[in-house]
Design a protein around this nucleic acid. Structure first.
Lengths: 396, 396
DNA sequence: CGTACTTCTTCCTGTTACGGGACAAAGACG
DNA sequence: CGTCTTTGTCCCGTAACAGGAAGAAGTACG
């Protein structure tokens, strides 16, 4: 299949492409309404896009009362690849240019095995997707890694949980493998972009997105744009202090949020409770599985286990405490809670909400929804394809 | 004097005006270099600006090796007014279009006396400045108030420390009085803009500016633009919790930063120490003045008083603790510390730095200057005139 | 002092972008 | 079948714009 070589030649074409991406196939007339381009200009630019093959005609549009219009859509053969490397798993997905997921694979994998092993796994999964027929080649790829990234170069910098990745040229390597443009970002930023593209944050311009997985991170969106900070480490809230006399954290400090609540901390606490026989429910699960995870705590809580509920409640309170501070500082229009522990569901959310609404000023919380993420495991890969398509659908 | 009626007609003119504002009188050639406009375009736009009277010719520029150029400068008669209403004082300043302060008055005043009284005071001071001859009328005014503002309307909303101001049409009222455009913002945001315009933050695009005065607030600048948040309360960090079992705060919660450290809290603590005879130095000052302020603590610390130093050290640690969290979240390129208590000087700064560098990740703090504000009492008014000039020097 | 070279400004022209009117095409509606 | 609406195309006048040419006003140097 011929791959996308052309790029929008100007800002107008870029706007048209994004409009087509976000609202699907569209008639010229509707496009004109949306982008507020004059008819002549629209005709010229659409014709050029048709020439380059980025968009194609696609049957007739529904009539709006007069002559029927021909639909325009992004070339149906375009394919984007989204890769989400988590601490303990890898997600790979293929989408069309409208960012609809055509194929999605997940594989458990420890990121600490290093970039070479992980890349091998990713390329394996990509091959599987190729074999399944959803894609031949790719026009662009986005990839997220669980640590800070020097964004312009697409290189992880000083990632705490993934030694061996520091300085590894992720962008360059993947681009070489796939033969297409690649963009790299923090996995949490991608989650935020995913929710902004296709999830709960679709119409919000200032929000943040807390991801509670193995660790805790936070994607910050200001004016519709991801805020990455000076060194790409914005949103790194896992090591904010929640208790001066709190637990020792791997980072060397005391009382970090992550030490008190995260997928890893929760599992540890649950196992401790099980061993100390404080919870029959958890003890049984530990017996059965040999170890516990956040999912076990969720299940125990759903079964009414008091200890599990307490763990969730306290974790939510800790998280809420931090979020309350950030809400005061940032005054967002929405807070999204996502990540592996979203299985903890309503209990966690309620606990967070209580804390935030109690601790932040009414002016900031008055109209502040705190909601669970909508996309689940697809958020990361959706954000990844959004990232690369934003890049490609922008004027050169 | 004829007042500015014209506004830049397009983005190019706006850019030219801002360039002239920020780098002073300039030759056409240099302007061309700075704004990267073609000679023809530059000539046309400059001519139009000359016609409208916004800029004037101003003698010959220094030669750069060939024919000398005529200088262009912003009309010397343009006058902006900056008003900074603090919790306990009012600042009023007049600047020219290059935002150089031509006259500056300060007057102690309790904002709780309400908008009518404060406005009367402000207008009084304005009249004094007028009488001194630095200005006749004004082409625009910026005004800062110590509380959240609904920015587009220029109206304070639910300000905790200034009851009676809620909903008062500050913008409308001042505009009526002065007969010129007015913009209103939070005083802390203005301080940040001031430091960005003429202080330490001149070349930084992402930073925040912590103002420790009667209360504590924080101006957040993202990509060179002040971030005001959804309801205009961004940066309201005074009520972030620093100690779950901490002091009771006026807001109803426990352990707010402001309850533990701020101009007001510091004075209270110092008086307590004086009464309990823990510090001879402070007791003496209390005796002399009848009450203590942050300045007294600063003086006592300078004299080597241990209690005063401890107070500063602990306050700095509390503040640093909060800032550390915000640094992790936001990853700024600079942190500015300002406000009334900057008199506390190096001790405070050192204490804050220690805490931030210890508690935030190296990636975020590695190249993070934490510096005192440069402009002192002029920051607010400078930010205010910057605000209005940004507004006026933008395409209609 | 004169000549060569720079820099700066103005004038001019060809190109491109753009908006909107006129008109044709295609369907909706009665 | 006729009329109305919507859509797409063509076309033209206007404005924006870049860059060349030439003149004005300096400097550098013999």
């Amino acid at each position: 299949m011929r791959r996308m070589t052309a790029r929008p030649a100007n800002a107008h074409q870029a706007r048209l492409l994004r409009a087509l991406r976000d609202s699907g196939p569209n008639s010229r007339a509707q496009l004109g309404d949306e982008t507020e381009l004059s008819r002549s200009k629209l005709a010229v630019e659409v014709d050029r896009l048709l020439e380059t093959g980025l968009v194609v005609a696609d049957g007739l549009a529904a009539s709006r009362g007069g002559r029927r219009s021909h639909n325009i859509r992004l070339a149906p053969g375009l394919r984007f690849l989204g890769v989400d490397i988590g601490a303990t798993s890898v997600d790979v997905a293929v989408t069309n240019a409208e960012l609809e997921i055509l194929g999605h694979l997940t594989h458990p994998m420890d990121v600490r095995e290093g970039p070479v092993a992980v890349f091998e796994q990713v390329l394996n999964m990509v091959q599987k997707l190729r074999d399944s027929g959803v894609a031949d080649g790719f026009d662009g790829a986005g990839i997220g890694v669980p640590g800070p990234v020097r964004f312009p170069e697409g290189v992880p910098v000083a990632p705490p949980i993934m030694p061996g990745w520091d300085g590894f040229p992720v962008r360059e390597a993947l681009s070489q493998e796939l033969g297409c443009p690649v963009m790299v970002d923090n996995d949490v930023n991608l989650m935020a972009m995913g929710e902004q593209q296709a999830g709960v944050a679709r119409s919000v311009r200032d929000f943040f997105c807390v991801k509670i997985g193995t660790g805790i991170g936070c994607g910050v969106v200001v004016g519709g744009v991801v805020h990455r900070g000076m060194t790409g480490s914005a949103g790194d809230i896992g090591h904010i202090q929640v208790d001066p006399e709190g637990r020792q954290c791997a980072c060397g400090n005391r009382g970090c949020l992550e030490a008190h609540f995260s997928g890893a901390a929760l599992a540890r606490d649950a196992e401790a409770a099980a061993r100390e026989d404080r919870s029959v429910e958890l003890a049984g699960r530990l017996e059965a599985a040999g170890r516990l995870s956040a999912a076990d705590v969720a299940a125990a809580a759903a079964a009414g286990d008091g200890v599990a509920l307490d763990l969730i409640q306290e974790g939510g309170a800790r998280t809420g405490q931090v979020i309350a501070g950030l809400v005061s500082f940032f005054n967002p229009g929405l807070v999204v809670i996502g990540g592996g522990v979203t299985g903890l569901g309503h209990h966690l959310l309620a606990s967070i909400r209580t804390q935030v609404y109690r601790r932040s000023l009414p002016l900031a919380t008055g109209n502040l929804p705190i909601v669970p993420a909508e996309l689940g495991p697809a958020a990361g890969v959706t954000g990844a394809v959004r990232l690369i398509s934003d890049h490609l659908f922008s004027p050169a």
